[in-house]
């Protein structure tokens, strides 16, 4: 039951997007999110749509994969839509009892739902085309300047990558302990919240004990392989920008500038 959880689901494929430096993809995702929440007007919306569709095409990830990601936020989308639909002031179109549907309400609701969908697809494009390790590497390198203000960037990145390695192991372990306690008559399903919480103790204590044991073993194994922090370390897969990465940066900047221009023009002439 717990095995269905997939974290940082990566879709292996041979595409330009897969090969891009993770820093480019991190930066691109950021730019895209900012553009989504700042744009105004139809032309900007069309541009954002064209941009997203072309990225999806380039990524070679089947569209169905991205739709899967949307399923988990359907409820959130409905709630956002309804709030915007009924709570926006403006020109009343329909009135049912105290609920008013306004022209602005419809506009806002559509806009917010579209933004949410684009946001989810955009960010999942990043995780689908970047392995968790690449992401960690990208974050480490991108955040390196913060080391100057004593932020332990290397340690944070190392922790993230170890977490990624051990999550599946601990998930499996949880499954096993759960079954072992069920074999001793444990009941994780029935009863009220307090009873359920109490029933978790036989699951959580062994899980913590095991996690500590693993952490201890792992620390020793890392030390045995001469690990002594980030200082003086070389990289097997160092991040280096290539031609494609530079081009991607240019595309991103052009996209962002265009969005800004469109916003400015729309506000100026349409309002």
């Amino acid at each position: 039951m717990l095995k269905d959880i997939t974290l940082g689901q990566y879709y292996p494929a041979d595409s330009i997007l897969h090969k891009l430096d993770p820093r480019v993809k991190l930066f691109g995702t950021m730019i895209y999110i900012i553009s989504l929440f700042s744009f105004r007007g139809i032309p900007a919306f069309v541009l954002a749509t064209i941009f997203l569709i072309s990225i999806i095409r380039i990524s070679k990830v089947p569209f169905s994969y991205m739709v899967k990601g949307l399923k988990s936020i359907v409820v959130l989308m409905i709630i956002t839509g309804i709030f915007n639909l009924f709570l926006t002031q403006g020109e009343v179109l329909v009135q049912i009892w105290v609920f008013k549907i306004t022209y602005e309400g419809i506009k806002n609701a559509v806009l917010m739902v579209v933004r949410l969908i684009y946001l989810i697809i955009g960010t999942s494009l990043m995780t689908l085309t970047t392995t968790p390790n690449q992401l960690t590497d990208g974050l480490e390198k991108a955040l390196m300047p913060l080391e100057k203000i004593k932020l332990p960037v290397h340690e944070i990145a190392m922790m993230m990558s170890i977490a990624l390695r051990f999550i599946p192991i601990l998930v499996e372990e949880t499954d096993k302990i759960m079954k072992a306690q069920m074999a001793r008559g444990a009941d994780f399903e029935s009863g009220n919240i307090i009873k359920k919480a109490k029933a978790m103790i036989p699951l959580l204590v062994p899980l913590f004990v095991s996690a500590f044991r693993r952490a201890n073993d792992l620390a020793m194994a890392m030390e045995a392989r001469c690990y002594h922090g980030g200082h003086g370390r070389t990289k097997m897969k160092p991040l280096a920008y290539g031609v494609a990465d530079r081009k991607a940066y240019v595309v991103l900047v052009v996209y962002f500038v265009l969005m800004l221009v469109l916003r400015f023009v729309w506000v100026r002439f349409v309002g």
């Binding site: 392995t131 044991r213 693993r214």
Partner: peptide
């Protein structure tokens, strides 16, 4: 074997 492998690849 599990507790001495550090990377995911």
């Amino acid at each position: 074997p599990d507790n001495q492998i550090i990377a995911s690849v």
